[in-house]
Design a protein around this nucleic acid. Structure first.
Length: 570
RNA sequence: CGGGACAUAGUUCAGCUUGGUAGAACAUCUGCUUUGGGAGCAGAGGGGCGCAGGUUCAAAUCCUGUUGUCCCGACCA
């Protein structure tokens, strides 16, 4: 490819709306352009990288036993109604009607589509296991699209679905995908972690998120450097923290004027924050009051609270009226002496003794609270409901956990029978009985992977591509393309590199050297070969490594093989 | 959906307070010079100020509505 024929509009400035480095660089380097909120066009350079990532994904999916298919983006409402998700999915689903008024949706995901396809086609256990995937645009009408390709309304996704005859088979498929995903992200040159995750709305069994480590990421993860444990902050299971044994003192109510926050109470009573119990009030869709109690220095994990309360779908911050109706008052809530509320107490709170908690009346707290003695065990739910914090003990090995942020680029789920049962997808097993498929689903955000790669690998000058996903591996730059001898020489090198199988760009633009160098750095080709009067005279060529800034001189005779070797070593 | 901000040339932004009929830089085009890190000089094209009303002799500038965008929050593979 020649730069004079390449549509690669680079810019000196980035749009005001771009916040993330990756978003700015994708824009400036001419990879993408915005069409509307959360909708982007991929320009040639961006699309080249997208295609390379997709190719890596295809190779790994095929290697793991997957087969590529293509399903419609436009999906009939009926299958979504059948699975029950037509109503549940809500505004995030882009819906449309055809000329006859029939309802459709632009696929946000394809569990319904693939399950209805398979239930009509696969009748025997002999056809299993089956892994089918596609790479296609997905549509989610996000409440707030942002960060360029990180959270867009239309995005390219690889989605694979596995069908197995039993749970063991499903777990094998899951493991294959887990391994395949690790290889995909390794080949893309990303630093990532497979973290234990909450299944969220999709439901089913276990799940891992593949998270690229980056401080700007939207998800927060806890990980252990000692063992392999990593989990999203919402999911991370925590062990009980035992307190040192003390002589129990009798429960006592004390005045705490205007101490409606933990900070004020702890200062007023002069107790360490670890000796206080904090309350957070929620309500659910049925306006049931749910009070969650954690240690003063801990934070409530809303998801864990939700999971520990039966028949609750959503949690909202509670109305003050609701709290008062339960004979309590905001700022001084307590499990002791409250009526008509669901009480959820963190497991670590149950280990505390002689602690401070609210007294359910204005300007008063209890001291010497010992939950095991003072809480009504019949009426409370004891569970792990707190948010993980840096320094918490690792649930696997007990060492101190660290926190980091990351970008979720892929997720693997076991679904079990969730969709196959809802959509009545069955096959005939060896024993002659009809059984429901055990399913799994596995997604990779292709655009997000590209964005994450940039987010993780860039400097002040621009992008630093890994060779496997760079739009071009090598760029050949004649310093002055108006000089026929330089251009001619550059063309020769370019031809030879092409023949050697290198993905190479010739920057034959009649621009000044500075302009071309700036563009090379901005776009981030891994290697730059420079041809100049200097190199012509010496008979050498100059190679610059983008990542290190290092210059190498190769002799004319074997420069092509040396460049090929250098590329391999990157 | 709540809170905040913005909308003027391809891009980044100035001009609005104090209405008088739009400007800079970068980008683009032409010519000359220059050629190892976003060059210099000369010249040219390009917008009627998100949209719709209103006030006024006169509206990017004031008022009302509306749409879009961005940020924070809630929400969310």
């Amino acid at each position: 490819m020649r730069a004079t024929q390449l549509y690669a509009p680079t810019l000196r400035e980035s749009p005001a709306e771009a916040e993330l480095v990756s978003h700015k660089l994708m824009f400036r380097a001419g990879l993408i352009r915005k069409a509307a909120g959360g909708l982007y066009s991929y320009l040639p350079l961006g699309w080249r990288t997208m295609k390379k990532i997709m190719q890596i994904i295809r190779e790994e999916m095929d290697f793991a036993g997957g087969q590529e298919i293509m399903m419609p983006i436009v999906q009939p409402a009926e299958i979504w109604q059948e699975s029950g998700r037509w109503a549940v999915y809500g505004d995030e689903m882009m819906r449309l009607k055809d000329r006859h008024g029939r309802e459709f949706a632009l696929g946000p995901t394809h569990e319904e589509m693939i399950t209805t396809l398979i239930r009509d086609e696969v009748r025997s256990y002999k056809q299993l296991p089956l892994m089918l995937y596609q790479i296609q645009n997905k549509y989610r009408d996000e409440i707030r699209p942002r960060f360029g390709l990180m959270r867009s309304r239309e995005f390219v996704m690889k989605d694979l679905y596995s069908f197995d005859r039993d749970v063991d088979g499903m777990n094998i498929s899951y493991r294959k995908m887990y391994d395949a995903y690790s290889r995909v992200f390794e080949r893309c040159g990303l630093k990532f972690r497979a973290v234990e995750a909450d299944n969220g709305a999709i439901g089913g069994g276990h799940s891992h998120e593949f998270t690229v480590l980056a401080p700007s990421g939207e998800s927060s993860i806890a990980y252990c450097e000692n063992c392999n444990f990593a989990a999203s902050d919402e999911k991370a299971e925590l062990k009980i923290i035992k307190s040192a044994p003390e002589d129990l003192k009798p429960l006592e109510k004390v005045k705490t004027p205007a101490c409606h926050t933990i900070e004020l109470v702890k200062n007023f009573l002069n107790v360490p924050i670890e000796k206080t119990i904090k309350a957070v009030a929620f309500m659910d869709d049925d306006e049931r009051l749910i009070l969650a109690f954690v240690r003063g220095d801990h934070e409530v994990n809303e998801i864990k609270v939700l999971n520990s309360v039966e028949n609750a779908n959503h949690l909202y911050m509670a109305d003050e009226k609701l709290i008062k109706a339960a004979n309590s008052c905001p700022g001084f809530m307590s499990p002791i002496g409250i009526s008509d509320a669901i009480i959820v107490v963190d497991q670590t709170v149950m280990e505390m003794c002689n602690a401070v908690a609210g007294a359910n009346e204005i300007d008063a707290h209890f001291i010497n609270v010992t939950p095991k003695r003072d809480f009504d065990a019949e009426k409370i739910i004891i569970s792990d409901i707190r948010m993980v914090q840096a320094g918490d003990p690792c649930p696997h090995c007990g060492k101190s956990l660290k926190m980091t942020r990351g970008i979720e680029v892929g997720q693997v789920f076991t679904l079990g029978k969730k969709y196959s049962a809802a959509l009545n997808a069955k096959f005939l097993d060896e024993d002659g009985k009809e059984k429901v498929f055990e399913m799994g689903c596995y997604g990779i955000g292709v655009g997000r992977t590209m964005a994450a790669a940039i987010e993780q690998n860039n400097d002040a000058d621009g992008i630093i591509w890994n060779k496997n996903i760079a739009p071009f591996e090598v760029v050949v730059v004649p310093v002055n393309a108006k000089d026929a001898s330089q251009l001619e020489f550059a063309e020769k090198i370019y031809d030879e590199l092409k023949i050697a199988g290198v993905d190479v760009l010739l920057d034959d633009r009649k621009e000044r050297a500075g302009v071309k160098f700036k563009d090379c750095d901005l776009i981030g080709y891994p290697l730059r070969v420079t041809i100049s009067p200097k190199t012509l005279e010496s008979g050498n060529i100059e190679v610059k490594i983008r990542k290190t800034g290092e210059f190498l001189n190769f002799s004319r005779e074997n420069c092509v093989s040396q460049i090929v070797e250098l590329l391999k070593s990157l």
